[in-house]
Design a protein around this nucleic acid. Structure first.
Length: 515
RNA sequence: CGGGGAAUAGCUCAGCCCGGUAGAGCACUGCCUUCGGGAGGCAGGGGCCGGAGGUUCGAAUCCUCUUUCCCCGACCA
Protein backbone atom coordinates (compact mmCIF):
# COMPACT_ATOMS: atom_id res chain seq x y z
CA UNK A 1 0.00 0.00 0.00
CA UNK A 2 1.36 3.37 -0.93
CA UNK A 3 -1.64 5.60 -0.63
CA UNK A 4 -1.05 9.01 -2.20
CA UNK A 5 -0.63 11.91 0.17
CA UNK A 6 -3.71 14.06 0.08
CA UNK A 7 -3.96 17.42 1.72
CA UNK A 8 -7.48 17.36 3.07
CA UNK A 9 -9.61 20.42 3.68
CA UNK A 10 -10.33 19.68 7.34
CA UNK A 11 -7.75 19.64 10.12
CA UNK A 12 -9.31 16.54 11.71
CA UNK A 13 -10.21 13.24 10.08
CA UNK A 14 -13.18 11.03 10.83
CA UNK A 15 -10.83 8.26 11.86
CA UNK A 16 -8.84 10.45 14.26
CA UNK A 17 -11.78 11.82 16.21
CA UNK A 18 -15.28 11.45 14.86
CA UNK A 19 -16.92 13.76 17.40
CA UNK A 20 -14.46 16.58 16.80
CA UNK A 21 -14.67 15.99 13.06
CA UNK A 22 -18.45 16.37 13.23
CA UNK A 23 -18.17 19.77 14.94
CA UNK A 24 -15.51 20.78 12.48
CA UNK A 25 -17.71 20.03 9.46
CA UNK A 26 -20.50 22.18 10.86
CA UNK A 27 -18.10 25.07 11.44
CA UNK A 28 -16.18 24.71 8.17
CA UNK A 29 -19.37 24.50 6.13
CA UNK A 30 -20.84 27.58 7.83
CA UNK A 31 -23.91 25.57 8.80
CA UNK A 32 -24.40 26.58 12.40
CA UNK A 33 -22.67 27.89 15.48
CA UNK A 34 -23.10 28.09 19.23
CA UNK A 35 -25.41 30.92 20.18
CA UNK A 36 -24.38 31.72 23.73
CA UNK A 37 -27.76 30.36 24.83
CA UNK A 38 -27.49 26.98 26.49
CA UNK A 39 -27.94 24.14 24.04
CA UNK A 40 -29.35 26.41 21.33
CA UNK A 41 -27.69 27.00 17.99
CA UNK A 42 -27.71 29.71 15.37
CA UNK A 43 -28.44 28.10 12.02
CA UNK A 44 -26.56 29.99 9.33
CA UNK A 45 -27.75 30.46 5.73
CA UNK A 46 -26.10 27.34 4.33
CA UNK A 47 -27.45 25.16 7.12
CA UNK A 48 -30.87 26.74 6.99
CA UNK A 49 -30.87 26.44 3.20
CA UNK A 50 -30.51 22.69 3.66
CA UNK A 51 -33.41 22.70 6.12
CA UNK A 52 -35.53 24.70 3.66
CA UNK A 53 -34.86 22.07 1.00
CA UNK A 54 -35.86 19.33 3.44
CA UNK A 55 -38.97 21.30 4.35
CA UNK A 56 -39.99 21.90 0.76
CA UNK A 57 -39.65 18.28 -0.31
CA UNK A 58 -41.16 16.82 2.87
CA UNK A 59 -44.02 19.30 2.85
CA UNK A 60 -44.91 18.29 -0.70
CA UNK A 61 -45.14 14.66 0.40
CA UNK A 62 -47.21 15.54 3.47
CA UNK A 63 -49.67 17.55 1.40
CA UNK A 64 -49.81 14.84 -1.26
CA UNK A 65 -51.10 12.52 1.48
CA UNK A 66 -54.00 14.89 2.11
CA UNK A 67 -52.59 16.31 5.33
CA UNK A 68 -53.21 20.01 5.96
CA UNK A 69 -50.81 22.39 7.65
CA UNK A 70 -51.83 24.52 10.61
CA UNK A 71 -50.14 26.31 13.44
CA UNK A 72 -50.62 25.88 17.17
CA UNK A 73 -49.30 27.98 20.05
CA UNK A 74 -45.79 27.78 21.42
CA UNK A 75 -47.20 27.78 24.95
CA UNK A 76 -49.23 24.95 26.39
CA UNK A 77 -51.20 25.30 29.63
CA UNK A 78 -49.78 23.07 32.32
CA UNK A 79 -53.22 21.55 32.83
CA UNK A 80 -53.29 20.18 29.25
CA UNK A 81 -50.14 18.30 29.93
CA UNK A 82 -51.30 16.96 33.26
CA UNK A 83 -54.21 15.18 31.56
CA UNK A 84 -52.09 12.43 30.02
CA UNK A 85 -50.20 10.82 32.87
CA UNK A 86 -47.75 8.69 30.90
CA UNK A 87 -47.04 11.53 28.51
CA UNK A 88 -46.26 14.02 31.25
CA UNK A 89 -44.03 11.50 33.02
CA UNK A 90 -42.04 11.07 29.87
CA UNK A 91 -41.47 14.77 29.36
CA UNK A 92 -41.71 16.34 32.82
CA UNK A 93 -38.01 16.33 33.45
CA UNK A 94 -37.12 18.32 30.39
CA UNK A 95 -39.60 21.15 30.01
CA UNK A 96 -39.13 24.90 29.99
CA UNK A 97 -41.80 26.59 32.06
CA UNK A 98 -43.05 30.17 31.84
CA UNK A 99 -44.11 31.45 35.25
CA UNK A 100 -44.10 35.25 34.94
CA UNK A 101 -45.21 37.82 32.41
CA UNK A 102 -43.31 40.93 33.50
CA UNK A 103 -39.88 42.01 34.65
CA UNK A 104 -38.94 44.66 37.17
CA UNK A 105 -35.66 46.24 38.19
CA UNK A 106 -33.85 44.34 40.90
CA UNK A 107 -32.41 47.54 42.37
CA UNK A 108 -28.91 46.52 41.28
CA UNK A 109 -29.20 47.56 37.67
CA UNK A 110 -30.55 44.20 36.55
CA UNK A 111 -33.97 42.76 35.89
CA UNK A 112 -35.91 40.09 37.69
CA UNK A 113 -39.38 38.53 37.24
CA UNK A 114 -41.98 40.68 38.95
CA UNK A 115 -43.41 38.66 41.87
CA UNK A 116 -46.75 40.41 41.25
CA UNK A 117 -46.75 39.13 37.68
CA UNK A 118 -46.78 35.42 38.44
CA UNK A 119 -49.02 33.46 36.08
CA UNK A 120 -52.08 31.81 37.62
CA UNK A 121 -51.31 28.74 35.56
CA UNK A 122 -47.76 28.19 34.35
CA UNK A 123 -47.27 27.73 30.62
CA UNK A 124 -45.09 25.02 29.17
CA UNK A 125 -42.96 25.78 26.15
CA UNK A 126 -44.08 22.92 23.90
CA UNK A 127 -41.81 19.87 23.80
CA UNK A 128 -44.35 18.37 21.35
CA UNK A 129 -47.95 19.32 20.64
CA UNK A 130 -50.15 16.27 21.11
CA UNK A 131 -52.05 17.96 23.89
CA UNK A 132 -52.83 21.36 22.33
CA UNK A 133 -53.63 19.78 19.01
CA UNK A 134 -55.73 17.18 20.79
CA UNK A 135 -57.68 19.97 22.49
CA UNK A 136 -58.35 21.53 19.09
CA UNK A 137 -59.37 18.22 17.58
CA UNK A 138 -61.78 17.76 20.42
CA UNK A 139 -63.53 20.92 19.22
CA UNK A 140 -63.24 20.15 15.51
CA UNK A 141 -64.43 16.58 15.56
CA UNK A 142 -68.11 15.86 16.15
CA UNK A 143 -69.10 13.28 13.61
CA UNK A 144 -67.66 10.29 11.76
CA UNK A 145 -67.88 12.62 8.76
CA UNK A 146 -65.08 14.74 10.29
CA UNK A 147 -62.70 11.78 10.20
CA UNK A 148 -60.00 11.22 9.38
CA UNK A 149 -58.62 14.58 10.45
CA UNK A 150 -55.12 14.98 9.10
CA UNK A 151 -53.02 17.90 10.34
CA UNK A 152 -49.39 18.88 10.43
CA UNK A 153 -47.38 21.79 11.71
CA UNK A 154 -43.87 23.05 11.09
CA UNK A 155 -42.64 24.44 14.36
CA UNK A 156 -39.91 24.82 16.91
CA UNK A 157 -40.06 22.84 20.13
CA UNK A 158 -38.03 22.91 23.31
CA UNK A 159 -36.75 20.00 25.36
CA UNK A 160 -34.44 20.85 28.21
CA UNK A 161 -31.89 18.21 27.36
CA UNK A 162 -29.00 17.64 29.72
CA UNK A 163 -26.50 16.96 27.00
CA UNK A 164 -26.71 18.74 23.64
CA UNK A 165 -24.96 18.41 20.28
CA UNK A 166 -25.57 20.63 17.28
CA UNK A 167 -28.36 19.36 15.02
CA UNK A 168 -28.48 16.01 16.85
CA UNK A 169 -29.85 17.12 20.17
CA UNK A 170 -30.41 20.80 20.83
CA UNK A 171 -32.60 22.35 23.50
CA UNK A 172 -34.65 24.04 20.79
CA UNK A 173 -35.11 22.32 17.48
CA UNK A 174 -37.15 22.71 14.33
CA UNK A 175 -39.41 19.97 13.12
CA UNK A 176 -42.62 18.93 11.53
CA UNK A 177 -45.21 17.16 13.64
CA UNK A 178 -48.11 15.39 12.01
CA UNK A 179 -51.18 14.73 14.13
CA UNK A 180 -54.11 12.74 12.87
CA UNK A 181 -57.35 11.39 14.24
CA UNK A 182 -59.21 8.39 12.84
CA UNK A 183 -62.47 6.52 13.33
CA UNK A 184 -60.86 3.20 14.11
CA UNK A 185 -57.65 1.44 14.91
CA UNK A 186 -57.19 0.04 11.43
CA UNK A 187 -57.31 3.45 9.81
CA UNK A 188 -55.01 5.00 12.43
CA UNK A 189 -52.48 2.21 12.13
CA UNK A 190 -52.55 2.57 8.36
CA UNK A 191 -51.75 6.27 8.75
CA UNK A 192 -48.91 5.45 11.16
CA UNK A 193 -47.40 3.13 8.57
CA UNK A 194 -48.03 5.59 5.75
CA UNK A 195 -46.02 8.26 7.57
CA UNK A 196 -43.26 5.78 8.37
CA UNK A 197 -43.00 4.77 4.72
CA UNK A 198 -43.02 8.44 3.72
CA UNK A 199 -40.00 8.97 5.97
CA UNK A 200 -38.20 5.89 4.68
CA UNK A 201 -38.70 6.96 1.08
CA UNK A 202 -37.66 10.54 1.89
CA UNK A 203 -34.51 9.50 3.73
CA UNK A 204 -33.43 7.20 0.95
CA UNK A 205 -34.33 9.16 -2.16
CA UNK A 206 -33.88 12.73 -0.94
CA UNK A 207 -31.20 12.43 1.74
CA UNK A 208 -29.53 9.42 0.07
CA UNK A 209 -29.48 7.99 3.58
CA UNK A 210 -30.32 4.27 3.83
CA UNK A 211 -32.59 3.48 6.77
CA UNK A 212 -34.44 0.60 8.35
CA UNK A 213 -38.09 1.27 9.01
CA UNK A 214 -39.32 -0.79 11.89
CA UNK A 215 -41.03 -0.95 15.25
CA UNK A 216 -39.29 0.17 18.43
CA UNK A 217 -39.36 -2.16 21.40
CA UNK A 218 -41.79 -1.43 24.21
CA UNK A 219 -39.16 0.29 26.39
CA UNK A 220 -38.35 2.79 23.64
CA UNK A 221 -41.93 3.86 22.98
CA UNK A 222 -42.98 7.49 22.89
CA UNK A 223 -44.62 8.41 26.21
CA UNK A 224 -48.29 7.55 25.88
CA UNK A 225 -47.99 5.63 22.59
CA UNK A 226 -49.36 2.16 21.88
CA UNK A 227 -46.76 1.54 19.19
CA UNK A 228 -43.72 3.53 18.07
CA UNK A 229 -42.01 3.07 14.73
CA UNK A 230 -38.77 4.64 13.58
CA UNK A 231 -36.39 4.93 10.71
CA UNK A 232 -32.87 4.10 11.86
CA UNK A 233 -29.77 5.20 9.99
CA UNK A 234 -26.18 4.16 10.58
CA UNK A 235 -23.58 6.88 10.87
CA UNK A 236 -20.02 6.43 9.64
CA UNK A 237 -18.81 5.68 13.16
CA UNK A 238 -21.21 2.77 13.32
CA UNK A 239 -23.64 4.44 15.70
CA UNK A 240 -27.36 4.52 15.08
CA UNK A 241 -29.38 7.66 14.57
CA UNK A 242 -33.14 7.62 15.02
CA UNK A 243 -34.01 9.82 12.07
CA UNK A 244 -37.79 9.90 12.23
CA UNK A 245 -40.65 8.47 14.26
CA UNK A 246 -44.28 7.58 13.74
CA UNK A 247 -46.58 6.67 16.61
CA UNK A 248 -49.91 4.95 16.89
CA UNK A 249 -51.37 6.52 20.03
CA UNK A 250 -54.45 4.36 20.41
CA UNK A 251 -57.31 6.11 22.19
CA UNK A 252 -55.29 7.32 25.19
CA UNK A 253 -54.82 10.87 24.02
CA UNK A 254 -58.37 10.97 22.67
CA UNK A 255 -59.62 10.02 26.11
CA UNK A 256 -57.55 12.58 27.99
CA UNK A 257 -58.28 15.37 25.49
CA UNK A 258 -61.86 14.23 24.85
CA UNK A 259 -61.72 13.57 21.13
CA UNK A 260 -65.02 11.82 20.52
CA UNK A 261 -67.31 11.48 17.56
CA UNK A 262 -70.78 10.21 16.83
CA UNK A 263 -70.65 7.17 14.59
CA UNK A 264 -73.04 6.10 11.84
CA UNK A 265 -75.20 4.25 14.32
CA UNK A 266 -75.56 7.29 16.55
CA UNK A 267 -73.24 5.96 19.27
CA UNK A 268 -70.25 7.78 20.71
CA UNK A 269 -66.71 6.60 20.11
CA UNK A 270 -63.17 7.72 20.89
CA UNK A 271 -60.97 8.65 17.97
CA UNK A 272 -57.71 6.81 17.39
CA UNK A 273 -54.82 9.22 16.98
CA UNK A 274 -51.33 9.18 15.51
CA UNK A 275 -48.36 11.51 15.53
CA UNK A 276 -45.20 11.53 13.45
CA UNK A 277 -42.21 13.81 13.07
CA UNK A 278 -38.81 14.52 11.63
CA UNK A 279 -36.52 17.29 12.79
CA UNK A 280 -33.37 19.25 12.08
CA UNK A 281 -31.65 16.13 13.37
CA UNK A 282 -31.89 14.91 9.77
CA UNK A 283 -29.17 17.43 8.93
CA UNK A 284 -26.89 15.83 11.51
CA UNK A 285 -27.68 12.51 9.87
CA UNK A 286 -26.69 13.83 6.45
CA UNK A 287 -23.39 15.13 7.84
CA UNK A 288 -22.49 11.83 9.47
CA UNK A 289 -23.72 9.74 6.54
CA UNK A 290 -22.05 11.59 3.69
CA UNK A 291 -19.40 13.87 5.18
CA UNK A 292 -15.76 13.07 4.56
CA UNK A 293 -12.36 14.41 5.57
CA UNK A 294 -12.89 17.39 3.26
CA UNK A 295 -16.14 18.43 4.88
CA UNK A 296 -19.79 18.04 4.02
CA UNK A 297 -21.05 16.22 0.95
CA UNK A 298 -24.59 17.18 0.08
CA UNK A 299 -26.98 15.00 -1.84
CA UNK A 300 -27.98 17.24 -4.79
CA UNK A 301 -31.66 17.03 -3.83
CA UNK A 302 -31.04 19.08 -0.67
CA UNK A 303 -28.06 21.18 -1.73
CA UNK A 304 -29.03 24.86 -1.49
CA UNK A 305 -26.86 25.33 -4.59
CA UNK A 306 -26.19 22.34 -6.80
CA UNK A 307 -23.74 23.95 -9.18
CA UNK A 308 -21.43 26.66 -7.90
CA UNK A 309 -19.56 28.66 -10.52
CA UNK A 310 -16.39 30.35 -9.37
CA UNK A 311 -15.01 33.04 -11.68
CA UNK A 312 -11.23 33.31 -11.41
CA UNK A 313 -10.95 37.04 -11.13
CA UNK A 314 -7.63 38.84 -11.13
CA UNK A 315 -8.74 42.36 -10.55
CA UNK A 316 -7.76 43.40 -14.06
CA UNK A 317 -9.27 44.12 -17.49
CA UNK A 318 -9.92 40.45 -18.15
CA UNK A 319 -12.43 40.15 -15.29
CA UNK A 320 -15.42 41.47 -17.23
CA UNK A 321 -15.11 38.76 -19.86
CA UNK A 322 -14.75 36.05 -17.20
CA UNK A 323 -17.82 37.31 -15.35
CA UNK A 324 -19.85 37.46 -18.56
CA UNK A 325 -18.80 33.93 -19.40
CA UNK A 326 -19.76 32.74 -15.92
CA UNK A 327 -23.17 34.39 -16.18
CA UNK A 328 -23.87 32.88 -19.57
CA UNK A 329 -22.93 29.48 -18.21
CA UNK A 330 -25.16 30.02 -15.17
CA UNK A 331 -28.05 30.92 -17.43
CA UNK A 332 -27.61 27.74 -19.43
CA UNK A 333 -27.45 25.56 -16.31
CA UNK A 334 -30.38 27.28 -14.65
CA UNK A 335 -32.59 26.37 -17.60
CA UNK A 336 -31.98 22.66 -16.99
CA UNK A 337 -34.04 20.24 -14.93
CA UNK A 338 -32.52 17.63 -12.64
CA UNK A 339 -34.18 15.39 -10.04
CA UNK A 340 -37.50 16.90 -11.12
CA UNK A 341 -36.65 20.51 -10.35
CA UNK A 342 -34.85 23.43 -11.99
CA UNK A 343 -31.13 23.22 -11.33
CA UNK A 344 -29.97 25.56 -8.55
CA UNK A 345 -26.87 27.43 -9.61
CA UNK A 346 -24.82 30.17 -8.00
CA UNK A 347 -22.17 32.41 -9.50
CA UNK A 348 -20.04 33.42 -6.54
CA UNK A 349 -18.89 36.93 -7.37
CA UNK A 350 -17.67 37.78 -3.89
CA UNK A 351 -14.36 39.60 -4.04
CA UNK A 352 -12.35 36.86 -2.40
CA UNK A 353 -9.74 34.60 -3.94
CA UNK A 354 -11.02 31.88 -6.24
CA UNK A 355 -8.87 29.25 -4.55
CA UNK A 356 -10.35 30.08 -1.18
CA UNK A 357 -13.85 29.88 -2.60
CA UNK A 358 -13.15 26.53 -4.15
CA UNK A 359 -12.21 25.01 -0.82
CA UNK A 360 -15.07 26.79 0.91
CA UNK A 361 -17.56 25.06 -1.39
CA UNK A 362 -15.75 21.75 -1.06
CA UNK A 363 -16.24 22.06 2.70
CA UNK A 364 -19.87 23.13 2.22
CA UNK A 365 -20.45 20.05 0.10
CA UNK A 366 -21.74 21.69 -3.09
CA UNK A 367 -22.17 18.74 -5.49
CA UNK A 368 -20.58 20.40 -8.53
CA UNK A 369 -18.00 23.18 -8.46
CA UNK A 370 -17.12 24.86 -11.73
CA UNK A 371 -14.16 27.17 -12.14
CA UNK A 372 -13.97 29.51 -15.09
CA UNK A 373 -10.97 31.68 -15.85
CA UNK A 374 -9.48 33.62 -18.74
CA UNK A 375 -8.18 30.44 -20.33
CA UNK A 376 -11.69 28.98 -20.38
CA UNK A 377 -13.15 32.12 -21.86
CA UNK A 378 -10.63 31.83 -24.67
CA UNK A 379 -11.11 28.11 -25.24
CA UNK A 380 -14.82 27.74 -24.48
CA UNK A 381 -14.09 25.28 -21.68
CA UNK A 382 -14.96 24.87 -18.00
CA UNK A 383 -13.06 23.19 -15.15
CA UNK A 384 -15.39 20.84 -13.27
CA UNK A 385 -14.98 19.32 -9.83
CA UNK A 386 -17.37 16.64 -8.59
CA UNK A 387 -17.61 16.74 -4.82
CA UNK A 388 -18.09 12.98 -4.68
CA UNK A 389 -14.88 12.37 -6.66
CA UNK A 390 -12.54 15.05 -5.38
CA UNK A 391 -9.24 13.32 -5.94
CA UNK A 392 -7.55 11.38 -8.70
CA UNK A 393 -5.72 8.14 -7.99
CA UNK A 394 -2.48 10.04 -7.59
CA UNK A 395 -4.00 12.18 -4.86
CA UNK A 396 -4.25 15.31 -6.99
CA UNK A 397 -7.41 17.36 -7.16
CA UNK A 398 -9.69 15.84 -9.78
CA UNK A 399 -10.58 18.84 -11.90
CA UNK A 400 -11.58 17.99 -15.44
CA UNK A 401 -11.57 20.43 -18.33
CA UNK A 402 -14.62 20.06 -20.54
CA UNK A 403 -16.06 22.04 -23.44
CA UNK A 404 -18.77 24.22 -21.94
CA UNK A 405 -21.58 22.81 -24.05
CA UNK A 406 -20.59 19.25 -23.15
CA UNK A 407 -20.63 20.11 -19.47
CA UNK A 408 -24.02 21.81 -19.66
CA UNK A 409 -25.45 18.77 -21.41
CA UNK A 410 -24.15 16.53 -18.64
CA UNK A 411 -25.36 18.48 -15.59
CA UNK A 412 -28.67 16.70 -15.00
CA UNK A 413 -27.12 13.26 -15.34
CA UNK A 414 -24.19 14.30 -13.20
CA UNK A 415 -26.42 15.50 -10.36
CA UNK A 416 -28.56 12.39 -10.56
CA UNK A 417 -25.48 10.21 -10.52
CA UNK A 418 -24.05 11.99 -7.47
CA UNK A 419 -27.38 11.54 -5.72
CA UNK A 420 -27.44 7.81 -6.39
CA UNK A 421 -23.73 7.29 -5.74
CA UNK A 422 -24.05 8.77 -2.29
CA UNK A 423 -26.86 6.37 -1.50
CA UNK A 424 -25.06 3.36 -2.90
CA UNK A 425 -21.89 4.09 -0.96
CA UNK A 426 -23.74 4.73 2.28
CA UNK A 427 -25.77 1.53 1.88
CA UNK A 428 -22.63 -0.51 1.23
CA UNK A 429 -20.95 0.94 4.33
CA UNK A 430 -23.97 0.23 6.46
CA UNK A 431 -24.60 -3.29 5.23
CA UNK A 432 -20.96 -4.20 5.77
CA UNK A 433 -21.32 -3.16 9.41
CA UNK A 434 -24.35 -5.28 10.27
CA UNK A 435 -23.46 -8.68 11.64
CA UNK A 436 -26.02 -11.43 12.28
CA UNK A 437 -25.40 -13.14 15.62
CA UNK A 438 -27.03 -16.19 17.09
CA UNK A 439 -25.86 -15.99 20.68
CA UNK A 440 -25.72 -13.31 23.36
CA UNK A 441 -22.13 -14.33 24.11
CA UNK A 442 -21.16 -13.42 20.58
CA UNK A 443 -22.87 -10.05 20.89
CA UNK A 444 -21.13 -9.30 24.19
CA UNK A 445 -17.74 -10.38 22.90
CA UNK A 446 -18.20 -8.35 19.74
CA UNK A 447 -19.03 -5.07 21.46
CA UNK A 448 -16.98 -5.44 24.61
CA UNK A 449 -14.31 -2.80 25.09
CA UNK A 450 -14.83 -1.36 21.65
CA UNK A 451 -15.68 2.18 22.61
CA UNK A 452 -13.87 3.72 19.66
CA UNK A 453 -13.96 0.96 17.07
CA UNK A 454 -16.58 1.05 14.39
CA UNK A 455 -18.66 -1.93 15.28
CA UNK A 456 -21.97 -1.17 13.68
CA UNK A 457 -24.95 -3.27 14.61
CA UNK A 458 -25.78 -6.80 15.54
CA UNK A 459 -28.76 -8.46 13.93
CA UNK A 460 -30.40 -10.93 16.29
CA UNK A 461 -33.53 -12.98 16.85
CA UNK A 462 -36.03 -11.62 19.31
CA UNK A 463 -39.04 -13.00 21.14
CA UNK A 464 -40.46 -9.62 22.23
CA UNK A 465 -40.20 -10.18 25.98
CA UNK A 466 -42.18 -7.75 28.12
CA UNK A 467 -42.22 -6.52 31.69
CA UNK A 468 -39.42 -7.76 33.95
CA UNK A 469 -37.91 -9.92 31.20
CA UNK A 470 -37.60 -6.88 28.95
CA UNK A 471 -36.12 -4.82 31.78
CA UNK A 472 -33.48 -7.48 32.27
CA UNK A 473 -32.58 -7.34 28.58
CA UNK A 474 -32.35 -3.55 28.66
CA UNK A 475 -30.02 -3.73 31.69
CA UNK A 476 -27.87 -6.31 30.00
CA UNK A 477 -27.54 -4.15 26.92
CA UNK A 478 -26.83 -1.07 28.99
CA UNK A 479 -23.63 -2.55 30.36
CA UNK A 480 -22.31 -2.51 26.80
CA UNK A 481 -23.93 0.88 26.03
CA UNK A 482 -26.17 -0.86 23.55
CA UNK A 483 -29.80 -0.28 22.69
CA UNK A 484 -32.34 -2.03 20.57
CA UNK A 485 -32.80 0.14 17.48
CA UNK A 486 -35.85 -1.42 15.89
CA UNK A 487 -37.35 -4.51 14.32
CA UNK A 488 -37.09 -3.81 10.58
CA UNK A 489 -40.37 -4.42 8.78
CA UNK A 490 -38.75 -5.93 5.74
CA UNK A 491 -36.86 -8.61 7.64
CA UNK A 492 -38.58 -11.98 7.32
CA UNK A 493 -39.92 -13.73 10.44
CA UNK A 494 -36.97 -15.70 11.84
CA UNK A 495 -37.01 -19.38 12.66
CA UNK A 496 -34.45 -19.57 15.50
CA UNK A 497 -34.72 -18.64 19.14
CA UNK A 498 -34.35 -15.32 20.93
CA UNK A 499 -30.74 -14.49 21.89
CA UNK A 500 -31.89 -13.17 25.23
CA UNK A 501 -34.65 -15.48 26.38
CA UNK A 502 -34.19 -18.61 24.29
CA UNK A 503 -37.89 -18.54 23.47
CA UNK A 504 -38.97 -18.97 19.85
CA UNK A 505 -38.17 -15.76 17.99
CA UNK A 506 -40.97 -13.71 16.49
CA UNK A 507 -38.93 -10.99 14.80
CA UNK A 508 -35.42 -9.85 14.04
CA UNK A 509 -34.00 -6.76 15.71
CA UNK A 510 -30.98 -4.54 15.28
CA UNK A 511 -28.78 -3.71 18.27
CA UNK A 512 -26.18 -0.97 18.38
CA UNK A 513 -24.83 2.12 20.07
CA UNK A 514 -26.79 5.23 19.34
CA UNK A 515 -26.75 9.01 19.33
C1' C B 1 -28.36 16.97 38.94
C1' G B 2 -22.99 14.99 40.00
C1' G B 3 -17.77 15.64 38.19
C1' G B 4 -14.26 18.63 35.28
C1' G B 5 -12.99 23.09 32.55
C1' A B 6 -13.54 28.07 30.73
C1' A B 7 -14.99 33.44 30.39
C1' U B 8 -9.14 38.69 27.60
C1' A B 9 -9.70 41.58 19.80
C1' G B 10 -14.53 38.83 15.05
C1' C B 11 -12.21 33.54 16.13
C1' U B 12 -8.47 30.31 18.82
C1' C B 13 -5.77 31.49 22.84
C1' A B 14 -1.19 33.57 25.81
C1' G B 15 -0.56 36.97 29.93
C1' C B 16 -2.49 35.71 36.10
C1' C B 17 1.66 31.99 40.23
C1' C B 18 5.26 36.86 41.29
C1' G B 19 -0.09 43.54 40.69
C1' G B 20 3.14 48.51 37.21
C1' U B 21 0.87 51.68 29.75
C1' A B 22 -3.30 45.08 26.65
C1' G B 23 -0.43 40.60 23.53
C1' A B 24 0.14 36.55 19.47
C1' G B 25 -1.79 33.67 15.40
C1' C B 26 -5.82 33.59 12.17
C1' A B 27 -9.60 36.91 10.28
C1' C B 28 -10.40 42.13 8.72
C1' U B 29 -8.67 47.15 5.87
C1' G B 30 -5.02 49.49 2.31
C1' C B 31 -0.87 49.18 -1.15
C1' C B 32 2.63 46.07 -3.94
C1' U B 33 4.09 41.29 -6.05
C1' U B 34 1.29 36.76 -7.10
C1' C B 35 -2.71 33.69 -9.11
C1' G B 36 -6.17 26.90 -12.14
C1' G B 37 -4.15 22.73 -4.59
C1' G B 38 -6.11 27.22 0.11
C1' A B 39 0.14 32.88 -1.78
C1' G B 40 3.78 36.44 0.08
C1' G B 41 5.66 41.35 1.69
C1' C B 42 4.81 46.05 3.97
C1' A B 43 1.51 49.28 6.55
C1' G B 44 -3.02 49.58 9.47
C1' G B 45 -7.94 49.21 12.29
C1' G B 46 -9.90 46.76 16.27
C1' G B 47 -10.50 45.40 23.75
C1' C B 48 -14.93 48.54 30.00
C1' C B 49 -9.88 41.42 30.28
C1' G B 50 -18.19 38.10 31.78
C1' G B 51 -20.61 41.20 35.94
C1' A B 52 -20.66 43.39 41.13
C1' G B 53 -18.05 44.44 45.41
C1' G B 54 -13.31 44.65 48.05
C1' U B 55 -7.62 45.01 49.06
C1' U B 56 -3.93 48.54 46.94
C1' C B 57 -0.72 54.60 45.18
C1' G B 58 -1.98 51.17 41.20
C1' A B 59 -5.94 45.07 39.55
C1' A B 60 -6.77 41.18 33.45
C1' U B 61 -3.53 39.59 37.59
C1' C B 62 -4.95 39.05 44.73
C1' C B 63 -9.84 38.22 47.82
C1' U B 64 -15.42 37.65 48.10
C1' C B 65 -19.91 37.16 45.65
C1' U B 66 -22.42 36.37 41.08
C1' U B 67 -23.81 35.14 35.95
C1' U B 68 -23.05 32.31 31.72
C1' C B 69 -21.08 28.77 28.46
C1' C B 70 -18.37 24.23 27.14
C1' C B 71 -16.81 19.04 28.10
C1' C B 72 -17.75 13.95 30.73
C1' G B 73 -21.98 10.68 33.18
C1' A B 74 -28.07 9.32 34.14
C1' C B 75 -32.80 11.33 29.91
C1' C B 76 -34.19 12.19 24.47
C1' A B 77 -36.22 13.86 17.58
Amino acid sequence: MNAPKIKHALPVSRAANFAVWYQEVIAAADMAEESGVRGCMVIRPWGFGIWERIQALMDARIKAAGVENCYFPLFIPLSYFAKEAEHVDGFAKEMAVVTHHRLIGDGKGGLTPDPDARLEEPLIVRPTSETVIGAAMSRWIQSWRDLPMLTNQWANVVRWEMRTRMFLRTSEFLWQEGHTAHADEGDARAETMRALEMYREFAETVLAMPVFAGEKPENERFPGAVATYSIEAMMQDGKALQAGTSHYLGTGFAESMNIRYQDKEGGHALAHTTSWGVSTRLIGGVIMTHGDDDGLQLPPAIAPQQVVIIPMLRDDDGDAAVLDYAKVLAGEVKALTALGEPVRVLVDTKATKAQTKRWDYVKKGAPIIVEVGPRDVASGNVAVIRRDALYKDDGKLNSSILPRTDFVGQVPALLESIQSNLFTEAAARRDAAIVPMADWKDVAAYFKGSEDAIKGWAQVNWARPTGAALDAVVEKLKTLKLTIRNAPLDYPTPSGSCVFTGSPAVETILIGRSY
